[in-house]
Design a protein around this nucleic acid. Structure first.
Lengths: 340, 340
DNA sequence: GTTTTTTTGATTTACGTACATCAGATTTGG
DNA sequence: CCAAATCTGATGTACGTAAATCAAAAAAAC
């Protein structure tokens, strides 16, 4: 049987009230007494029963998710997963609220974050916009004791406690190697379709992609990036136009807006053997993978990201350890054979 | 605030004791009264506070893991993950015990399972040996009310509640497509190294591999399977011998014992451009992936499998729902760029 | 040495549920 | 209609912790 507060009290030769004062860092305990209790805690290997404590406290975990107001399927999926988490709230004692901020608008994000410091949530998950002012508020909030995790897009160099998202440089490198290996000895040009080079994750994917391509597949030349702004229409136009170049033998789509890409491919490239790698598994990319329009899909599992963010925030709020291996968000690689 | 038993009692116009009798299916409640209470439960949307209930019951979850006594790195890894889980036991209220049975010995497995029905664990996780007698005991135990999940290797056609492992047919198909695409237009022969065709997961991987190969990559011919019994020495011998065949341009290693494979490759194939796909990420395969001896690794995350099995067993024991998407064990595909 | 302050102990209530006991009410059987 | 059987209510204790109160003891200040 694991030791309880009573056992600690007995072992330390103090009363229950004193143990409670020490455990919950309440004032009114002499230094020596505090030490006695802490020794007993260590020696008996006491760990507070979080379930019982939460019951007694009537604790809930008010969490805030800050998301960009982007209208693409990935963000819709992320929202859906958060709604699922909200449905589980009663069982998980969470109280989740989402706030939408204009995408790529660091000032707006900063304003929201500063507003939050007043309402005292016990944890914040945010899709970070990578800017110095954001980094500054995040660091301030972390110092003030708020658990903060970044979601999907990280804020490197900040003090955020955790990042619930994939390694985008690795994703880009993986895409490059897959494309390079799939194309084998062929020589030709590679088109890259991105959302916007202002977004950190897209920049990182491109960075990883480019470095492996230039180092290891010198026969493949990367064309200037097409910025589709995650907009299907624009993506369609850009890709359709690019396909006029007969040297293109591969495409890497590292952002959203794949609907336009797929349409362009089906219209313009029926007779060509293009190798295409895209990001994010959606109904559209899934169908395209099955009918061979796309050759591989790299994906991050939004559900895992949301659940991981919640687990980490709760653990941080309770001062508990997280299982690192469990919280690592993996890059999924889907071929048509291992679709879920 | 979520409703409590008191609210139900008030709403149904009965006493707390009666609500308790209904909730815990104790006798001594008239049919009409029971219905009143059940209606109130439904209407208020009452869900039992599992944490409080567990506290009151002093509940722990005695779980049993039944593993084959196989001496390969995957099983060692699995064991290590179970030990990690045991370390978390106090916090998770679990009480985990492992039992080793001789590998591929269905009679021994049956004997162990029958022994278990007497000691009443609240859940059983087992690496299944695929045999009719095993299926029969499992079905009996499920009928008797034991939550059972299969781990790593499934028992299809049985009544087990859940399978915590990867889809091995999909894994084989994925390996085939990766190998086929990596080899591109080349023609040649493919060697397959397996552990034993007596193991279901190996059979399934081969099945998936073969079907995609024959359907979609007719220029690649699969040689008769080399059965390495997951033994590095034997694998080394078999592969070294096979590499005498200069037509071999690809290898699929679908079992354990990759140490021998890697050694053989480094000795015999330095001057050849072989494409190699192997299963299970270990220190050895990892190093081989980095130095280009292996081109891709398919992996199942033993930690996730163990944690998933535990979550599912606990949920079943409490009669709760599981988050299906969370419990799906994904097939990891590692290139040298996305190693964890 | 007394007063004031600080520290500690003892005790109680609460959280939401489980479980046991016993008395009282209601239904059923004869 | 009464006895027996069945059902229901009232009540209390427990689980491990939090949090509060008030009294008592110890230490510090005067």
């Amino acid at each position: 049987m694991r030791p309880t507060v009573h056992d600690i009290a007995a072992a330390a030769g103090v009363s229950l009230a004193t143990v409670d004062r020490v455990l919950n860092q309440r004032p009114g305990v002499r230094h020596v007494t505090r030490e006695k209790v802490e020794t007993a805690i260590r020696e008996l290997g006491y760990v507070r029963d979080v379930a019982a404590a939460n019951l007694a406290k009537g604790r809930t975990y008010p969490l805030v998710f800050i998301l960009p107001a982007s209208d693409n399927s990935f963000m819709h999926g992320l929202n859906a997963e958060i709604r699922q988490a909200i449905l589980r709230s009663p069982a998980e004692r969470t109280d989740i609220r989402t706030i939408e901020v204009p995408a790529f608008d660091s000032a707006a994000l900063v304003a929201v974050l500063e507003g939050l410091s007043r309402e005292k949530p016990c944890g914040i998950a945010m899709v970070a916009t990578d800017a110095p002012d954001v980094r500054a508020v995040v660091d301030r909030l972390v110092h003030a004791g708020f658990p903060i995790v970044t979601l999907v897009s990280d804020l490197t160099g900040s003090l955020r406690h955790h990042y619930a998202g994939v390694d985008n440089i690795a994703a880009g490198r993986t895409a490059a190697r897959l494309l390079g290996r799939f194309l084998g000895p062929r020589k030709g040009k590679i088109a890259v379709l991105a959302g916007s080079m202002l977004v950190r994750d897209h920049r990182e994917r491109l960075e990883g992609f480019t470095s492996v391509m230039t180092e290891e597949f010198p026969d493949l030349a990367i064309l200037p990036v097409l910025e589709g702004r995650d907009d299907p229409e624009l993506a369609h136009m850009l890709v359709a136009e690019a396909l006029g170049n007969a040297d293109i033998i591969g495409i890497y789509s590292l952002g959203a807006g794949n609907r336009g890409l797929i349409r362009a491919l089906k219209e313009k490239a029926v007779d060509r053997t293009l190798t295409v790698i895209a990001h994010e598994l959606t109904a559209h990319t899934r169908a395209a993978l099955i009918d061979n329009t796309i050759d591989a899909i790299l994906n991050q599992n939004a559900g895992h990201e949301v659940r991981s963010a919640i687990r980490v925030l709760k653990a941080k709020a309770d001062g508990l350890a997280v299982i690192e291996a469990q919280e690592r968000i993996r890059l999924d690689i889907f071929l048509k054979d291992n679709l879920p």
